[in-house]
Design a protein around this nucleic acid. Structure first.
Lengths: 155, 155
DNA sequence: TATATATTTATAAAGATTATAATTTTGTAA
DNA sequence: TTACAAAATTATAATCTTTATAAATATATA
């Protein structure tokens, strides 16, 4: 995959959504597509500012809100005060490890939850979110060690 | 149910969790138990400050964090910047209407999601959350009317 | 009644997001 | 190419939510 064509593809996606493919927007979208870490605004900014020294955090906010409105990205709300973004729109759940802070994706099908569920049957469901918390297998295995990696609560 | 015994019961629940049943704590817990509106900190505060004129918002935060730690209440994270609280611990989903902002509970059983789900099988799941967004039946019926009630986005 | 401890309160501080206005970039037409 | 208009980006200020701190109040115990 050549860099040129890659950018071309990203541009096309943005254009299809009526979003002008500016340099910053392409970089942000590229960043989201290239990670599965569900980054926060802070993480996106601090990584990209190396490449784009003039980058402003307001641009990250503007861009992400734009992408969200165009359904190119979605917000992952797991902890308060920790808005994360995910480029993937397809339905999946998130698991956050309370020890190491990592967020894992897991496959999920929620269709059967809606049909046959009394109250929801007359509702129009636009968005389904599911997230679990607990301890991931990696941290479970290391539980003899006091604290492996930094925890993710930020508190 | 007499008021005296009601407060007595609430006190007992707090005491069982090693939480001293102060006047403010009883009032907050009573408030949570008496509503299904999944209130924000702001809503809890502004309602209770009528009864308790000296009440401080910091007390609400302290108390809710205390309850959360004792598993007497849980945080509902649906929108960013809108932490809501629910006194009910038992497993259920939340549906937020994007038109009127109301949050509905719906029954859900997520056990079958965990077992048989590859990645999760080796994880320790402590907490399961599920929330949907869309339009509730009430707003769907009123959709001819421009905007019934205030919307809940706060933006 | 003293004294120690815990709770509440008021205020300041920190952090995240949005709003505003100036600057820069981009696109278009002469 | 140049001039102009529109859009995007940037820097900064403002707002909002939550937490931290210290003083004041209330509670419990000896």
């Amino acid at each position: 995959m050549k860099p040129g064509s890659k950018n071309g593809n990203i541009s096309d996606v943005l254009i299809k959504k009526n979003i002008k493919p500016s340099y910053q927007r392409i970089k942000v979208f590229e960043y989201l597509l290239g990670t599965d870490s569900h980054p926060t605004v802070e993480q996106i900014y601090s990584d990209l500012v190396n490449e784009i020294p003039t980058l402003s955090k307001a641009t990250i906010y503007n861009t992400l809100n734009l992408f969200e409105g165009a359904q190119l990205a979605r917000v992952i709300t797991i902890e308060e005060n920790e808005t994360r973004y995910d480029a993937c729109i397809e339905e999946h759940g998130h698991f956050k490890c309370e020890n190491c802070g990592k967020i894992y994706d897991f496959p999920v099908n929620l269709d059967n939850l809606v049909s046959g569920n009394g109250i929801l049957e007359n509702f129009k469901v636009n968005e389904k979110n599911i997230y679990f918390k607990g301890i991931c297998s990696k941290c479970l295995n290391n539980k003899s060690n006091k604290q492996e990696g930094k925890n993710g609560t930020g508190k």
